[in-house]
Computed example of a mutant assay.
Amino acid sequence: MPELIAPTARLHAAWLEARDEWGPGLHEDGFGLGPSDEVDSPGGFATWVARLADESSPKTVETGRSCTYRWIVEGDRVHGGIALRYGINDYVRQFGHIGYGIRPSSRRRGLATWALGRILDEARTLGLDRVLIVCEADNHASVKTIERQGGNLEGVWDTEHGPMRRYWIKI
């Protein structure tokens, strides 16, 4: 049975396995990995996990860097990540309130739809009445995931990253 958990240094090896499956790069939006994060060493990984916990703190709402990060896990296997960003700022306008990703070998199991439903519950608890979700226009799996959770298409926009679909979900 999958769970959404807060990032933890305990799953360092499992997280590295998921990252290696994705290949080089910053990977999926739901992990909150930045270009300066060093995650290969246990110390660097612990520092990154601590930053994610700090950004999840309510005190960061005023800075625009507040975000709830959750990992999608079963036992000690990391399937993916999902992030819920609070407020509305330029970053949220561009990338949405919610970002997620599922590692390739864990796709087509309904994990993204399940995780999105759980993070919408967290958004409701935080008092959000609607959330913006953005995905690449040709990402048919994300389109289905968002629409299954009640996403209403606002439109498709050309961006520097290519055409993007923007959805709103009422909570």
Rank of each mutant, 00 (worst) to 15 (best):
L116H: 04
A123L: 12
K144V: 01
G101N: 05
S41W: 06
W48D: 07
V73W: 00
E21S: 13
A14C: 08
H12A: 11
T63K: 14
T8Q: 09
A6E: 15
E3H: 14
N89M: 04
G87T: 08
V92K: 03
R124L: 06
E154M: 07
H161C: 13
D54A: 10
K59G: 06
A46K: 01
M164Y: 02
F95G: 02
E154P: 02
G25S: 07
E38K: 05
G75N: 01
K59D: 06
V78T: 11
R10C: 04
G162S: 13
P42I: 01
E136C: 06
T60K: 15
G117Y: 03
F31M: 15
W114P: 05
L84R: 05
M1V: 07
P42L: 05
A6R: 15
P42K: 01
G44Q: 03
I98P: 01
R166M: 07
G80L: 05
P7C: 10
K59W: 05
P2V: 05
R109A: 06
R130I: 04
I133P: 00
A9S: 15
D54R: 04
I102L: 08
R51Y: 04
F95R: 08
G75I: 08
A46Q: 04
G110A: 14
L126D: 06
L126I: 01
G151K: 10
D129E: 14
E122R: 10
S142Q: 10
R77N: 00
I133M: 00
H27D: 15
A13T: 11
A14P: 12
G117E: 08
T68Y: 02
R51G: 08
V134I: 03
A83Y: 04
A115M: 08
S66D: 07
Y100K: 09
H27W: 15
L84D: 07
A50P: 12
R130M: 09
I146R: 05
S36A: 13
E147P: 01
R51D: 14
W48C: 03
H161F: 13
A123Y: 08
T68D: 09
S105W: 05
A46V: 05
T68F: 02
R107Y: 10
V39M: 11
H79I: 04
I119L: 10
P35M: 12
Q94T: 13
A137K: 04
E21C: 03
I72F: 00
D37S: 02
K170H: 12
E3G: 01
V39P: 05
G25F: 09
L52F: 07
G96L: 02
S56T: 11
D158V: 03
W22F: 14
Y100W: 14
R130V: 02
C135L: 00
S105R: 06
T68A: 07
D37T: 11
N152F: 03
S105A: 06
V143C: 07
N152C: 13
N152E: 12
H79N: 00
R19K: 15
T145I: 14
I146S: 06
L126P: 00
G99T: 01
D90E: 15
G99K: 01
E55D: 13
Q149G: 03
A50T: 12
